[in-house]
Design a protein around this nucleic acid. Structure first.
Length: 825
RNA sequence: GGGCCGGUGGCGGAACCGGUAGACGCGAGGGACUUAAACUCCCUUGGGGGCAACCCUGUGCGGGUUCAAUUCCCGCCCGGCCCACCA
């Protein structure tokens, strides 16, 4: 017998809709549980088979919590701004608004067909003006706090999207969205000063329960390093004002080994200090470096290039003149865009020095060498004349050599002392650097939130360089209708072409003014959506304070690892900022963060449209049913690991669901026997596995349970308990079965079972018996039997006798319930 | 190059805190039911040996700790993901 999934799934989904049983309740005395999944980007392709993995898993958790009497908020919405929709609009000439409407309708239908217990009354959409009104309002909060600023600086530019990208969006020199080539470009951009929060984003990781690998990845991305800022005086001075070159280093202790300086090609001092003879060559090099795409620059395989500027600077500790070079192995965006090169103790500097025959001076030795009498100690640390060719580079810590008065100090000690010396001499100071960059927040695109600023023609607001916020009562600044969605040839947003929208009046002085035509990146709306779910229809504020107090923080948040350095970091930052402004009650938005693995194609590779190995959830649901898809996707493997899709596996799960329905239809109360000893341990295991995120073994536990039951009919109460625990996994089947046995109402209304300890303990276990660690037999014995009993049973066993007879028994190890091991000689 | 994760049957995977390796599912083989098929049910299924009871071997490779290692330690090899000239 095979149950009719189409009929029963529709039936119960309608019942859930009618009763509103999954709606979260504000002002409710029950304990709250806020369960969150990353809301999807509603693409034209429809739901990906990977989506249900995360949604189903957290659905199981949410459903269990409801059974346990919690007031659960499990919402869903649409992260709908973004390039694919815009590109589709360009291709078809249709409005992105219309395309989005169609796509979200599809996604909603697909998600509902899975029976996921979302609270559909709280659906949000980032492209809804009632939503992005608040995204804009929050941007203005950043602006008013001085954290949003416009600047011209080299940014990552995607050549095919014609769009500026944040660091986080550039993957191996390619655009994260389209995979196209990127290069550095000078462009005016709105930035948000996320770096001001770098320390707190780092430190507060200790206060949250994230999977360790997520924390590690965020720490690495923030990339805090401590060191020193050191100033080198250019000598001879190229003009009346003597320029100084500032460098950041994590190894100030190697200053004596600094034999040259290197500036990034973008460095502002280059033109000023380069000598006339070198100028042509330098300019050519700088130009070439600019044109190099990020890919080329990265793929140079350590082959170093560079040009001498002709200028020299003074090493403050040795007093020696050292040459200043320009090379693109130094990054303009990190530190000061200039480095002190210590070829003896840095691989990159070493490679460069060898290439251009620059001096290499050893100033650190591994500590172990210090115990050996060393002829080098004490030799002068001069330049050219006494340079020995060093054949390898030592980057570790150790003891200083060739370092004047500091010689003999350990690295840690020397770092402190040299920084103190630099500070007194006015040549430098202790300093901290981060890899994290400020967030490039402008997009020259149509399909995003307009940045709600106006530039006053008279620049009446001097301190903000003429930029004036659109007043709150004029928000949202609604996206105007345009003819064409293409970015303009000048690299400006299509909005720039709508004159009567661009031209406006200055909110401050009433004079003429122009609107900002850039839009926000698609990360904007997703940075705070978890707050809007709490009060999605509020028109007075983004969410009511009382309700925020009630619901925040999110108790459990699941999403993909690919968002660890993007969305997850951005939204933590955004929430912290709102917290500082007094708008949200907690500093960290997510108490616990989990991540899921990808669902791969059957061949173990990523699913992709081009390879044609994509699985369509609609087909699966219509052919095998939502419950089969739900249970299979949980069963296929460990939740956090990637697993290949396998249709036969899904069919196996469907067979199991048929087996359950068959059991229930054949179930006969009058023939019931006590099955407590069978079902109780299994139900307990399945229940525990939910909290441990071990959904795969939870499903297999149900299978084992039915294998053990066989034809045995359990009591009504026992069957009911079973169906309640099954319900989070296969809610349609559980409800249908519930009705089949004549029970009223919905399974969702039932409390989670309390497990009876007495039924969990087993009276007999099979205990392995080993001789010298090799399993030779097994005995059936009480799990808590004493050693004498176990010993008797074990030595009575024929097989054990055969392996022990005539041998000296050295000792026996008996671990009750685990093992009985006899050591013989 | 760095960080993280992983490597167990033909396949996906299980094994709690070191305690009978291979649960559960798929696939395969055999059988029952059927006029036949589908469905369902039963048996077998890591490799090698043996009629059998059983024996040997086995969790990427090489060592080690232990009564006992898929699990812990050391050294390698391979794969995946993320980051990557970050001073």
């Amino acid at each position: 017998m095979s149950y009719n999934h189409q009929a029963i799934e529709k039936k119960w989904q309608d019942r859930w809709d009618e009763t509103g049983i999954f709606y979260a309740k504000d002002n409710d005395p029950r304990e709250k549980f806020y369960c969150l999944v990353e809301f999807p980007y509603p693409s034209g392709a429809g739901l990906h088979i990977g989506h249900p993995r995360s949604y189903t898993a957290l659905d199981v958790v949410s459903r269990k919590r409801r059974h346990q009497g919690k007031n659960v908020l499990y919402p869903i919405g649409w992260d709908a701004f973004g390039l694919p929709t815009e590109n589709y609009a360009i291709k078809t000439g249709r409005k992105p608004q219309d395309i989005t409407k169609e796509n979200t309708d599809t996604f909603r239908r697909q998600l509902k067909s899975l029976g996921i217990s979302f609270d559909w009354s709280r659906e949000v959409n980032t492209t809804d003006p009632n939503y992005y009104k608040w995204t804009q309002w929050m941007f203005l909060e950043f602006f008013k706090a001085g954290l949003a600023y416009k600047t011209t600086q080299p940014i990552n530019w995607c050549l095919s999207c014609k769009i500026g990208l944040a660091n986080e969006e550039v993957v191996n020199g390619r655009c994260e969205r389209c995979g196209g080539d990127t290069e550095k470009r000078e462009k005016e951009q709105w930035m948000i000063a996320i770096t001001k929060y770098a320390d707190r984003l780092l430190e507060d990781l200790d206060t949250v329960d994230y999977m360790e690998k997520i924390k590690i990845q965020q720490r690495n991305w923030i990339g805090k390093s401590e060191g020193a800022l050191i100033s080198f005086k250019v000598d001879p001075s190229p003009g009346p004002v003597t320029p100084w070159i500032n460098v950041f280093t994590t190894r100030p202790d190697t200053l004596f080994g600094t034999t040259y300086l290197v500036l990034a090609p973008e460095h502002e001092l280059i033109e000023q200090i380069a000598t006339d003879e070198q100028m042509l060559e330098i300019m050519a090099y700088v130009e070439a470096a600019k044109k190099k795409s990020e890919i080329e620059r990265g793929s140079d395989e350590k082959e170093k290039t560079g040009v001498f500027t002709g200028a020299y600077a003074i090493n403050p500790v040795t007093g020696k003149k050292i040459p200043v070079w320009v090379a693109d192995y130094v990054l303009g965006g990190y530190g000061t865009g200039a480095i002190m090169a210590v070829p003896a103790h840095d691989e990159r500097d070493f490679a460069f020095a060898k290439m251009f025959e620059l001096p290499i001076v050893k100033v650190v030795e591994p500590e172990v060498l210090q115990n050996i009498i060393h002829p080098d100690v004490g030799i002068s640390h001069g330049m050219q004349s006494d340079v020995k060719v060093v054949h390898e580079c030592f980057t570790g810590e150790g003891v200083a050599v060739n370092s004047g008065e500091f010689t003999g100090q350990k690295t840690e000690e020397m770092k402190k002392n040299i920084v103190a010396w630099l500070e007194t001499e006015g040549h430098g100071e202790a300093s901290v650097n981060y890899k994290l960059r400020d967030w490039v927040f402008s997009r020259q695109r149509y399909w995003g939130e307009p940045i709600p600023l106006v530039h006053c023609d008279k620049e009446c607001q001097v301190e903000t360089k003429g930029w004036v916020p659109v007043p709150d009562d004029q928000l949202p600044v609604v996206l105007p209708e345009v003819e064409k969605y293409e970015p303009t040839d000048t690299g400006e947003s299509p909005l720039a072409t709508i004159e009567d929208w661009v031209n406006t009046t200055c909110p401050a002085c009433g004079g003429s003014a122009k609107r900002e035509t850039d839009t926000m990146p698609n990360w904007a709306g997703s940075s705070w959506y978890f707050l809007r779910y709490i009060d999605p229809h509020n028109n007075e504020t983004f969410a009511d304070q009382e309700k925020l107090n009630q619901w925040m923080p999110v108790d459990l948040y699941n999403g993909g690892m690919e968002h660890t350095t993007l969305h997850l970091l951005y939204s933590r930052f955004w929430n912290k900022f709102l917290f500082d402004r007094g708008h949200v009650p907690v500093s960290e938005p997510y108490a616990r963060r989990h991540s899921h693995g990808l669902v791969l194609a059957e061949d173990g590779t990523k699913m992709s449209k081009s390879k044609g190995n994509v699985v369509n959830p609609d087909e699966i649901v219509s052919e095998y049913g939502a419950d089969a898809l739900r249970m299979y996707i949980l069963f296929m493997g460990p939740f956090e690991e990637p697993v290949p899709w396998n249709l036969n596996g899904l069919i196996g799960v469907r067979r199991f669901l048929d087996k359950i329905m068959r059991y229930v239809s054949e179930w006969d109360e009058s023939a019931a026997v006590d099955g407590g000893k069978i079902i109780e341990p299994h139900l307990k295991k399945a229940s525990d596995d939910i909290d441990a995120f071990k959904f795969n073994t939870a499903v297999s536990t149900f299978m084992m349970l039915f294998n053990e039951l066989g034809q045995k009919k359990i009591t009504r109460d026992q069957l009911k308990r079973l169906l309640i625990v099954l319900c989070p996994f296969a809610p349609h089947v559980a409800n249908e079965a519930w009705e089949m046995i004549g029970e009223e109402g919905l399974v969702e209304e039932q409390p989670w079972p309390e497990f009876d300890e007495a039924l969990l303990v087993r009276d007999q276990v099979e205990l392995g018996v080993q001789v010298n660690g090799k399993t030779r037999s097994a005995i059936v014995i009480a799990p808590d039997a004493d050693e004498a009993t176990a010993r008797e049973a074990a030595f009575a066993d024929e097989n054990v006798k055969r392996h022990t007879e005539g041998k000296e028994i050295v000792k026996v190890i008996y671990v009750p319930g685990k093992i009985f091991n006899i050591v013989v000689k």
